[in-house]
Design a protein around this nucleic acid. Structure first.
Lengths: 110, 110
DNA sequence: CATCTTAGTAAGCCATGGCTTACCGTAAGC
DNA sequence: GCTTACGGTAAGCCATGGCTTACTAAGATG
């Protein structure tokens, strides 16, 4: 159950476009904060704040290398979102088929 | 290209908790606006506004039944998000393994 | 030990966006 | 045709949260 809310918190975190951009850059390669800030249209502290949110959402992890902190994606958080999405995707497909069948029956009823 | 940005737009749409709630209710069963509004802590127009966003994000579709509009999940939008997530999930796992290997090598170097 | 780099936090500003009420269009039921 | 139910849109309010600058901490480098 800690996982269910985890997936939802992750979605909340990825709601912000800057955080999505950071997320995609970390997918390309793990990076330090200062390197992420270069190439982004926001200041370094802003990046730190975003990383904090992403970390709390279980989407990134970080390791220290000297004064630098190397951030990378956390497969666990992404996995949780993936499972959440998959289950809803399945329901959506079910509902879609059900609806199609129903429409078909109504066609026949005429 | 409308679809690549589609996955990102979907994430933006699901960033709001009320929209996630609506999304989950629609996953359970397709519903009319007035029925969604009952049981949610917001007014009916608010629900309409959320549905508009979800629809633009390709996450829901609606059909008319008299004056009612029955909303349901759209598998296509969910599928797009799923693919986006899967690709990043793969990168995350790669990076994770790479990092683990690297750490292991450094262990051996001592 | 002094300095420089990296990064997290605090304080405060301000735009975004989510909410409400009010209004209008449209389909059904009597 | 009049009324009722449903739902989208407009206008406006206000809190949330994302951004900046300033400050502090901690490790590296000379």
């Amino acid at each position: 159950m800690a996982y269910k809310s985890g997936a939802l918190e992750s979605l909340g975190a990825l709601g912000d476009p800057t955080r999505r951009e950071i997320f995609e850059r970390l997918a390309a390669q793990p990076s330090a904060v200062v390197d992420l800030a270069r190439g982004l249209p926001v200041s370094r502290p802003a990046v730190s704040q975003h990383l904090k949110v992403l970390k709390q959402a279980g989407l990134v992890r970080e390791i220290s290398q000297g004064t630098r902190r190397i951030y990378s994606l956390d497969p666990r958080g992404i996995g949780a979102m993936r499972r959440w999405l998959d289950s809803h995707w399945a329901s959506a497909l079910d509902a879609f088929r059900q609806f199609a069948d129903q429409q078909h029956e109504e066609e026949l009823d005429r």
